[in-house]
Design a protein around this nucleic acid. Sequence first.
DNA 1: ATAGACCTTCCCACGATGGGAAGGTCTATA
DNA 2: TATAGACCTTCCCATCGTGGGAAGGTCTAT
Lengths: 132, 132
Amino acid sequence: MSVINIGEASEKTGVSAKMIRHYEDIGLLPKSKRTESGYRFYKEDDLHNLIFIKRARALGFSTAQIKKLMGLWLNKSRKSADVKKITQDHIEELEVKLKEMQQMIKALKEMSGCCHGDQKAECPILENLSKT
Amino acid sequence: MSVINIGEASEKTGVSAKMIRHYEDIGLLPKSKRTESGYRFYKEDDLHNLIFIKRARALGFSTAQIKKLMGLWLNKSRKSADVKKITQDHIEELEVKLKEMQQMIKALKEMSGCCHGDQKAECPILENLSKT
DNA sequence: ATAGACCTTCCCACGATGGGAAGGTCTATA
DNA sequence: TATAGACCTTCCCATCGTGGGAAGGTCTAT
């Protein structure tokens, strides 16, 4: 059973060593085993956790949400309803933010479209920003 | 000329007193005048700055961007092109984030749509998250 | 043996915002 | 006029995810 250190684990998973330590600190990962000299070491199997976290982060889940998801993942008597609930909540949060951003973009484009963008001082963008 | 303290300025503009102080700290607002006892005070005219910041924040501009925008706003010999540039850059940043979020939502919805969300342990969401 | 690459922990930073403590000031009422 | 309560001040800490860097220890190839 091959054993790797944090640098290799980082390379293999694409999660920085800094973040691996951080995830351990906040309890997202179990405390890793250590060599006699204090170096963390991992087995191939431990990398699954890191990959799980990486995927979940890429999908925008917060570390709090990931903690719950990992708990369910490891729990053989989980209910898929619980997983789905977390996912649905997350989707809703994202959609709220998405709408906010779309509104911002819409307003910004309208303002920008009114601005000549030339050498003159007159500027509808600034007028809009300063209007009460 | 009526003079108001930070609490009233906050009420009138909807910017928290905490944030008014913060904007002053980071140089987004000029140092406010003080009474003999050290209280900040503002005139009606000073509120325009706060309103400007508030509008700009609502449109997602960063404080760094707002600093530039306010500089241009106060500069009578500005070129509207400079304002438009900042705005366009901001729009592009937002659009990048928007697309990322849309992709996340799309992937999440697909996963969620495959999950029965019932009492059983089998869960395509977790399977997806853990797949290499 | 030594250099260089790697590991450890610890502290600091970002950005925007809020919480809260300790202490000073202002104002209305008793 | 004294006092309570509301407000102000500064200062430090927290969030969230991530990275930088220092000081010091370890490992490995030459």
